[in-house]
Protein backbone atom coordinates (compact mmCIF):
# COMPACT_ATOMS: atom_id res chain seq x y z
CA UNK A 1 0.00 0.00 0.00
CA UNK A 2 1.44 3.35 -1.04
CA UNK A 3 1.49 6.20 1.44
CA UNK A 4 -0.63 9.11 0.41
CA UNK A 5 1.05 11.76 -1.69
CA UNK A 6 1.83 14.96 0.17
CA UNK A 7 0.78 17.91 -1.90
CA UNK A 8 2.49 21.22 -1.22
CA UNK A 9 0.32 24.02 0.18
CA UNK A 10 0.45 25.75 -3.20
CA UNK A 11 -1.75 23.01 -4.63
CA UNK A 12 -4.66 24.43 -2.62
CA UNK A 13 -3.76 28.05 -3.43
CA UNK A 14 -6.11 28.98 -6.30
CA UNK A 15 -3.83 31.37 -8.27
CA UNK A 16 -1.16 28.65 -8.38
CA UNK A 17 -3.09 27.33 -11.40
CA UNK A 18 -2.91 30.62 -13.30
CA UNK A 19 0.42 31.48 -14.93
CA UNK A 20 1.51 34.62 -13.07
CA UNK A 21 2.08 37.87 -14.97
CA UNK A 22 4.81 39.17 -12.66
CA UNK A 23 8.16 37.68 -13.66
CA UNK A 24 9.62 37.01 -10.24
CA UNK A 25 6.41 35.49 -8.97
CA UNK A 26 6.14 33.40 -12.15
CA UNK A 27 9.69 32.08 -11.77
CA UNK A 28 8.93 31.05 -8.22
CA UNK A 29 5.66 29.47 -9.39
CA UNK A 30 7.30 27.48 -12.19
CA UNK A 31 10.00 26.28 -9.83
CA UNK A 32 7.43 24.92 -7.38
CA UNK A 33 5.49 23.32 -10.24
CA UNK A 34 8.61 21.71 -11.70
CA UNK A 35 9.50 20.15 -8.36
CA UNK A 36 5.92 19.01 -7.92
CA UNK A 37 5.81 17.44 -11.41
CA UNK A 38 8.93 15.38 -10.74
CA UNK A 39 7.91 14.39 -7.25
CA UNK A 40 4.37 13.37 -8.22
CA UNK A 41 5.36 11.44 -11.33
CA UNK A 42 8.07 9.65 -9.39
CA UNK A 43 5.49 8.76 -6.76
CA UNK A 44 3.27 7.24 -9.46
CA UNK A 45 6.28 5.78 -11.25
CA UNK A 46 4.93 7.48 -14.34
CA UNK A 47 7.26 8.68 -17.07
CA UNK A 48 4.96 10.02 -19.70
CA UNK A 49 2.38 12.81 -19.68
CA UNK A 50 -0.01 14.24 -22.20
CA UNK A 51 -0.66 17.96 -21.88
CA UNK A 52 -4.36 17.42 -22.68
CA UNK A 53 -4.87 14.88 -19.93
CA UNK A 54 -7.18 17.22 -18.05
CA UNK A 55 -8.47 14.90 -15.35
CA UNK A 56 -4.98 14.01 -14.17
CA UNK A 57 -4.77 15.19 -10.51
CA UNK A 58 -1.45 16.88 -11.13
CA UNK A 59 -3.09 19.18 -13.67
CA UNK A 60 -6.44 19.46 -11.98
CA UNK A 61 -7.40 20.09 -8.37
CA UNK A 62 -11.07 19.18 -8.25
CA UNK A 63 -11.51 20.29 -4.66
CA UNK A 64 -10.86 23.93 -5.49
CA UNK A 65 -11.97 23.73 -9.16
CA UNK A 66 -8.69 24.92 -10.60
CA UNK A 67 -6.71 23.38 -13.43
CA UNK A 68 -3.59 24.01 -15.43
CA UNK A 69 -4.17 24.98 -19.04
CA UNK A 70 -2.25 22.98 -21.68
CA UNK A 71 -0.27 26.18 -22.34
CA UNK A 72 0.83 26.44 -18.73
CA UNK A 73 1.67 22.74 -18.61
CA UNK A 74 3.86 23.30 -21.66
CA UNK A 75 5.66 26.18 -19.94
CA UNK A 76 6.44 23.92 -16.98
CA UNK A 77 7.55 21.02 -19.19
CA UNK A 78 9.79 23.34 -21.18
CA UNK A 79 11.43 24.39 -17.93
CA UNK A 80 11.95 20.72 -17.07
CA UNK A 81 13.40 20.19 -20.52
CA UNK A 82 15.93 22.96 -19.86
CA UNK A 83 17.11 21.20 -16.72
CA UNK A 84 17.29 17.86 -18.51
CA UNK A 85 14.26 16.27 -16.88
CA UNK A 86 11.85 16.16 -19.81
CA UNK A 87 11.70 15.79 -23.57
CA UNK A 88 8.81 16.06 -26.02
CA UNK A 89 7.91 12.81 -27.80
CA UNK A 90 6.13 14.31 -30.78
CA UNK A 91 6.55 17.32 -33.00
CA UNK A 92 3.43 19.04 -31.66
CA UNK A 93 4.79 18.69 -28.14
CA UNK A 94 1.66 16.98 -26.80
CA UNK A 95 3.24 13.83 -25.36
CA UNK A 96 6.21 14.27 -23.08
CA UNK A 97 8.69 12.04 -21.37
CA UNK A 98 9.51 13.19 -17.83
CA UNK A 99 12.11 11.76 -15.47
CA UNK A 100 13.16 12.69 -11.97
CA UNK A 101 16.83 12.08 -12.70
CA UNK A 102 18.46 13.47 -15.82
CA UNK A 103 19.39 11.00 -18.56
CA UNK A 104 23.04 11.49 -17.73
CA UNK A 105 22.38 10.67 -14.08
CA UNK A 106 20.55 7.49 -15.04
CA UNK A 107 23.33 6.51 -17.41
CA UNK A 108 25.97 7.00 -14.70
CA UNK A 109 23.95 5.07 -12.15
CA UNK A 110 23.57 2.12 -14.47
CA UNK A 111 27.20 2.27 -15.54
CA UNK A 112 28.42 2.25 -11.91
CA UNK A 113 26.16 -0.67 -11.16
CA UNK A 114 27.41 -2.61 -14.18
CA UNK A 115 30.98 -1.99 -13.08
CA UNK A 116 30.34 -2.99 -9.48
CA UNK A 117 28.56 -6.18 -10.47
CA UNK A 118 31.24 -7.15 -12.98
CA UNK A 119 29.04 -7.04 -16.04
CA UNK A 120 31.35 -5.04 -18.27
CA UNK A 121 31.83 -6.42 -21.77
CA UNK A 122 28.81 -8.68 -21.59
CA UNK A 123 25.46 -7.99 -23.16
CA UNK A 124 22.62 -7.15 -20.81
CA UNK A 125 19.07 -6.81 -22.01
CA UNK A 126 17.21 -3.59 -21.45
CA UNK A 127 14.60 -5.59 -19.53
CA UNK A 128 17.22 -7.06 -17.19
CA UNK A 129 18.51 -3.62 -16.30
CA UNK A 130 15.15 -1.94 -15.89
CA UNK A 131 13.12 -4.73 -14.33
CA UNK A 132 15.40 -7.69 -13.60
CA UNK A 133 15.83 -9.20 -10.14
CA UNK A 134 19.47 -8.15 -10.01
CA UNK A 135 18.74 -4.45 -10.27
CA UNK A 136 16.13 -4.45 -7.52
CA UNK A 137 16.79 -1.78 -4.94
CA UNK A 138 18.65 0.50 -7.34
CA UNK A 139 17.30 3.94 -8.22
CA UNK A 140 16.84 3.01 -11.86
CA UNK A 141 14.87 -0.16 -11.16
CA UNK A 142 11.36 0.22 -12.53
CA UNK A 143 12.26 3.18 -14.71
CA UNK A 144 10.54 3.32 -18.08
CA UNK A 145 12.57 1.37 -20.65
CA UNK A 146 12.23 4.15 -23.18
CA UNK A 147 13.82 6.57 -20.72
CA UNK A 148 16.72 4.24 -19.98
CA UNK A 149 17.24 3.62 -23.66
CA UNK A 150 17.59 7.37 -24.20
CA UNK A 151 20.05 7.45 -21.32
CA UNK A 152 22.14 4.71 -22.95
CA UNK A 153 22.14 6.63 -26.21
CA UNK A 154 23.99 9.47 -24.43
CA UNK A 155 26.43 6.92 -23.01
CA UNK A 156 26.87 5.39 -26.45
CA UNK A 157 27.88 8.80 -27.81
CA UNK A 158 30.70 8.85 -25.27
CA UNK A 159 31.84 5.40 -26.39
CA UNK A 160 31.08 3.77 -23.08
CA UNK A 161 28.46 1.33 -24.35
CA UNK A 162 26.87 -0.05 -27.46
CA UNK A 163 23.17 -0.51 -27.94
CA UNK A 164 22.22 -3.43 -30.17
CA UNK A 165 18.82 -4.34 -31.48
CA UNK A 166 17.68 -7.79 -30.38
CA UNK A 167 14.49 -9.44 -31.75
CA UNK A 168 11.92 -7.28 -30.08
CA UNK A 169 14.06 -5.60 -27.49
CA UNK A 170 17.48 -4.09 -26.97
CA UNK A 171 20.72 -5.33 -25.58
CA UNK A 172 23.46 -3.18 -24.19
CA UNK A 173 27.12 -3.93 -23.91
CA UNK A 174 29.12 -1.67 -21.60
CA UNK A 175 32.85 -1.06 -21.77
Amino acid sequence: MMTEFEWPWEYTFPPFFTLQPHEETRNQQIKVWSDLFLRYLKYLNKFQVNINENTFPLFNNDAIKRRLSPETITVILEQLQRTGHAAPLDKRRIEWQVYSYTLEEYANMVYDWIQQTGQLNTICTLYEIASGENSEGTEFHGVDEAVLLNAFRTLENKGKCEVVQLDDSFGIKFF
Binding site: W9, F13, P14, P15, F17, T18, T25, Q29, K65
Partner: peptide, 27 residues
Protein backbone atom coordinates in the same frame (compact mmCIF):
# COMPACT_ATOMS: atom_id res chain seq x y z
CA UNK B 1 -0.97 36.46 -7.16
CA UNK B 2 -3.60 36.62 -9.88
CA UNK B 3 -6.30 33.96 -10.17
CA UNK B 4 -8.07 33.90 -13.53
CA UNK B 5 -10.20 30.85 -12.81
CA UNK B 6 -12.32 32.30 -10.04
CA UNK B 7 -15.80 31.70 -11.40
CA UNK B 8 -17.52 33.31 -8.45
CA UNK B 9 -15.65 36.53 -9.04
CA UNK B 10 -15.93 36.93 -12.81
CA UNK B 11 -12.63 35.11 -13.39
CA UNK B 12 -10.38 37.57 -11.64
CA UNK B 13 -9.25 37.73 -8.06
CA UNK B 14 -6.05 38.68 -6.29
CA UNK B 15 -4.55 36.48 -3.59
CA UNK B 16 -1.97 37.17 -0.92
CA UNK B 17 0.13 34.11 -0.11
CA UNK B 18 1.08 35.90 3.10
CA UNK B 19 -2.56 35.78 4.20
CA UNK B 20 -3.45 32.35 2.83
CA UNK B 21 -4.25 30.06 5.78
CA UNK B 22 -3.40 26.86 3.91
CA UNK B 23 0.24 27.90 3.72
CA UNK B 24 1.31 27.60 7.33
CA UNK B 25 -0.89 24.60 7.93
CA UNK B 26 1.83 22.65 6.14
CA UNK B 27 5.06 24.52 6.00
Amino acid sequence: WVDEQDEENSHLSYWFPSLFPGRYAQS
